[in-house]
Design a protein around this nucleic acid. Sequence first.
DNA 1: ATCCCGAGGG
DNA 2: CCCTCTGGAT
Length: 217
Amino acid sequence: MVKVVQKSISPLQLLQALEQVYPDAHCELLYRNPWQLLVATILSAQCTDKRVNLVTVELFRELPDPEHMAAASQQQVEDLIRSTGFYRNKAKSLIRSAQQVLTLHQGKVPADLNALVALSGVGRKTANVVLGNAYQIPGMVVDTHVKRLARRFGWTQTDKPEQIEIELSRLLPPTTWIQCSHTLIAHGRACCKAPTPICSACPIVKLCPRIGVQTAR
DNA sequence: ATCCCGAGGG
DNA sequence: CCCTCTGGAT
């Protein structure tokens, strides 16, 4: 008598299946250099990337680099970024981080996690976006989509972003980290939405650990 | 009404 | 740990 054990798919296998579905997933923020990506990512908090790209057209024309941003007034920056929300905090962060990049890093955005996180308005999520997309240095980006999908897949139990980042970094090899967030974000937007996933139209529903175990949330 | 590629302050 | 910051899209 052979006992059949239902073995769940590994995180790497599930991720690879998703990459087949979303082969073109990529960073949708528009930028020309690391500084502009840093700016766009700071602006992306609680805002769609489409809205950020609308705002940065004029923002980058008026204030294209750390020198211009560091010298700008709070009012000018607020007026340029208002529609992205949280505009007072974001304006303050942009001006301060520009000043820090100038005084601490010779005007160049540092390619180092700790140095990035030390900048105003830059947390681990923003820092890892810049590291991965501007410098091709593997960083696990945990945003609202990655957090939601990682929990639904059973890859983590916690809801603390930094803890999720640590756990996913152990579950997946560094070579997959940069593309991982793009793939999960693409799937999160298209299908595995908050609060209700559209499982009936899900391309990987047969591989989903959530279906079958039926754990809530 | 809820959600969008969060971070800082108390 | 919690709370606050904010406008736009759906």
